[in-house]
Each structure stands twice: as C-alpha cells, then as structure tokens.
Design a protein around this nucleic acid. Structure first.
Length: 425
RNA sequence: GAGCCUGUAGCUCAACGGCAGAGCGCUACACUGUGGCUGUAGAUGUUGUGGGUUCGAAACCCAUCAGGCUCCCCA
C-alpha cells in the first residue's frame, strides 16, 4: 500500500456497483425530464474563469473551484456549475432557438471544497431549465419535474418534500418591516442560518445586522407564518398549478427557504429528505430573470433547478430503493468442458450472441465446479455445458441456476429454449 | 481556511506498551461432468506513510496523506 498512487482527494471511483447506481439515477432523471419534453444537452467541462468571475465573484471562484493556467497562459476552470454556460449558449443562439427552451443535462462538476458525507469535490449534477416563459405556471412545471423524479425513484411525500418560497414575497415582507433593500441579502443569510443556530445566538446575529427588536419580532412572525403564501398571487397560482399537475402532495410553502444564490428573483424551492440521516438538500432551484443579460444576451427569464448525484445516492441507498445490483449484463454462461472443446464453446457463444443474447464464455479450461461457482457469483441465470457426449450428439445442456434443473436440448432448438428459460428465470 | 475523531488481513472490527487476532470472504478437499447449503483443512499483514520516545510501539509523541463529524461555504 505504501507506494500506491491514491485517487485525487474528493474524486469518485465508480466500481461497477456504484456505476450501476449512477446509471440508475441517470435513467430516472432522463425519464422525468423527457416526460415533460425536455431536450438533453451538454456544455464544456472546462470554461474560462471569467465566465464565473462575472457572476459569482472572484473570491468564490478562486477559493472553491479547480482553476489552473493552461499551456497558453489562459486561466481555465473545471466547471463548478452549469447555469453560466447555459446562459452563454442560449444567448449565442437566442435568435434561432425555438422558445420556450426546455433543456436538461446530467454531467460532471468540480468544486474545491472539504469533502464530507454527501459532498465530494467531483460530482454529477442534473440540471433542468426552462427559458422564455415567465410565469408561476412555468415555475410549477419545473417543480413537477422534480416531484416526478422523486416519485419515480420511490421517494413518497412522507420521505421527501419540496419546500417553496418566493423572493418577491419576502422582499415585500421585508419592506413592510422597514428593512431597506440594501439589507436584503444579509437578512436572507440570516434566514438561511436560522435552523443551524441556537435561538439566542441567532437573535444577537440579527441585532448585529442592525435589526431592532420590533423588526426581529416581525421577522420571526413571517418565518413562522406558513399561510403567508396566500398573500402572494404568484404562489397562489403556483399551488393551483401544482395541484393540476398532480404533485401538490410533494410541495409545501416554507418562508425559511431562501437559497444563497444572488440571481434568484422569484420562486425558489428546495427538496429535502424528511427522515434520513442527511440534512442536505436533494435539489434546489428557482426563477432567475437577469442571467442572460449578464452574459450579453437579450433579457430572458428562466427557471431551473439542479440535483447532485451524491446526496440522492446516499438517500436511495439508506431507503433501500436501489435496485439489486446485477454483476453482469449476461444472463448466460457458456462453460468450457476441456481444452479439446474450447473452440466448440466459443462457437456456441458466438452463435447465441448473433441471436441477440448477452453471453459470457468461460475464457479458459477450468474445473466445472469453478465455472459454476463463477456463474453463481455473477448471478448468471443459465449455464450451458457442452461435454464430449453433447458434442458428439449435437446437443447442449442448459442448467437453470435458480432452480437447479437442467435439460439436454438439440443445438437447433437451443436459442429458443434459452429464450424460454430466461422468461421464467 | 479552523477544530475534533478515525486509519490493523480482501471486508467488518478486536488487541490499547510485552507472541497481531476473530467473524465474513478466499483457496483446497469431501464432490476428478455442475454453483448455492454443510463439514474438514489452509493462506492471509511493511498495523495508511515518514520520523521520534522506549529494553520493547499497532498502541505514546511529531509530521504527512486519506476518510468522517462540525464550523465556514454551498454557484
């Protein structure tokens, strides 16, 4: 172990079992996206640092992203998020795209952070966005895509919920408390931190920000008022739409949801596991109105969300919702009796593959016992044996490894027999 | 960027200053044309890495790497 070169800190190694989980998530994400007509797309994995510096602030980019100088002396970064790339690509073809644009993507991202449970430096992220429609009904569609995903992986509303709030509603509530617009960001951070801090500390933090006692009391009233959404036309329409879309049971109004991002302007939402060990968000998103203008496009409103693969992967495993891992995609093993019948077995395997079956041929002579043990570990359903007897008579043995039964069949009938046996296996 | 915890066989862990162990897994045999179950036997190792203290270190100290928890951050 001493001289082994280790994987880079925070990177992911996908052994087949983990790869199966990643692909499972990918499949569900693809289905949820496509059910609503979203198109799959992808952006570069490497971008110039300027793309992020413009929006996120240089400090953040330098501290929390993988940034390096390329051979030409340009500073590039492994993408820490997708939205700026999306904004640029949309802006570049703004004149020729058919709006509303509905796009989804699932790819790798990197952030230079301290790895913890649910957080790695390399991760995959599902992004879903709709651009060109600015309405609570469109916001509801995005939430419905997320809810469709949760439902499809077996996370019921008892286990996972999407909490919704609205920035404009909160801003007007802040205004009513006499909190000036310049303080909104700080107060948002304060709200964000409420569940993480002790009440007394939170209070003194609020005073540090310059809030007075009546403003603090008012803020607490707001944050405890789960009927506040009724004052917002946007949220009223949003919830009506969620009901029509059949996902209302997954969504709850929560005035404590703010999201750190500067660019959200209206609806914001975050999904959480309500009973697992992780307190991290499953996915989160919202409406952004100014993103395209920031990269030189015409003003265009959008709504979207993102989900990392790490947190949802842990939740699915803890909830026992990951399908049983199949070690091999081949349900059939052609055993190899001895050296003299080696090529006979390989010919048979090739024949079965031509018929469309996934087949493993044991690669070298070995005791049948060993070959069957291998088949068992790989959870192979059928083992085929061609020994001297079968070879001579033009037969093959099919053994069903689930039931232990085995039959001799003619070579001509083999493909059909296997297909029959696989239906029941 | 800060604090705390952890690192021993392939895996999960024990030994906590005095011979490095167990369970599972692995290999062989029972069963030379057949897996799972059972029984018997066997092999595991630079105790993460580098240094120090000590007659003696897996254990104590320092450094370092990796993982976890918390703070920070969370685009």
């Amino acid at each position: 172990m001493a001289n082994k070169i280790q994987a880079v800190k925070g990177t992911r190694e996908f052994y087949p079992e983990q790869m199966a989980l990643r692909n499972f998530i990918y499949e569900k994400v693809r289905k949820a996206s496509q059910a609503f007509g979203y198109q799959e797309w992808e952006a570069p994995f490497i971008e110039t640092i300027d793309l992020y510096a413009a929006k996120s602030g240089e400090e953040l980019v330098k501290k929390q992203s993988f940034t390096f100088e390329d051979r030409g002396g340009d500073f590039v970064t492994l993408r820490p998020e997708l939205t700026p790339s999306l904004a640029r690509m949309i802006a570049a073809k703004q004149g020729e795209l058919t709006f509303p644009v509905r796009w989804w993507s699932f790819g790798p991202f990197w952030r230079y952070e301290q790895p913890q449970k649910g957080r790695t430096r390399e991760f995959f992220q599902w992004n879903v966005d709709m651009l060109g429609v600015n309405s609570p009904e469109a916001d509801a569609e995005l939430i419905a895509v997320g809810a469709a995903f949760l439902r499809s992986v077996g996370l019921s509303p008892e286990r996972a919920l999407i909490y919704v709030n609205n920035r404009r509603l909160m801003d007007s509530e802040f205004d009513a408390l006499g909190i000036v617009p310049e303080k909104r960001l700080e107060v948002s951070n304060l709200v964000d931190r409420r569940t993480k801090m002790e009440p007394a500390k939170w209070d003194s933090y609020a005073f540090d920000l310059g809030l007075n006692q009546s403003q603090l009391d008012g803020l607490k009233d707001i944050l405890g008022n789960f009927d506040l959404w009724k004052k917002s036309e946007e949220l009223t329409r949003l919830f009506a739409t969620l009901e029509a879309l059949g996902v209302k049971e997954y969504v709850k109004f929560d005035p404590n949801i703010m999201r750190g991002l500067l660019y959200y302007t209206g609806t914001v939402f975050e999904a959480f596991d309500t009973s697992g060990s992780l307190k991290r968000a499953i996915f989160g998103g919202g409406r952004y109105d100014n993103l395209l203008a920031d990269v030189g496009g015409q003003p265009l409103s959008g709504v979207g969300f993102a989900m990392g693969d790490v947190v949802i992967g842990i939740i699915l495993q803890e909830a026992g919702l990951v399908p049983e891992f199949m070690p091999t995609p081949a349900p059939v093993l052609v055993t190899l009796f001895d050296e003299s019948l080696w090529m006979k077995s390989f010919e048979l395997a090739a024949e079965l593959r031509t018929a469309g079956l996934n087949v493993i041929a044991y690669p070298e002579p070995a005791k049948l016992q060993k070959q069957f043990k291998f088949a068992d570990k790989m959870k192979i359903k059928l083992a085929l044996v061609i020994g001297p007897d079968e070879a001579e008579k033009g037969l093959a043995v099919i053994k069903n490894l689930g039931t232990g039964e085995q039959v001799q069949v003619k070579r001509e009938a083999l493909v059909n027999s296997i297909q029959e046996a696989l239906k029941n296996a």
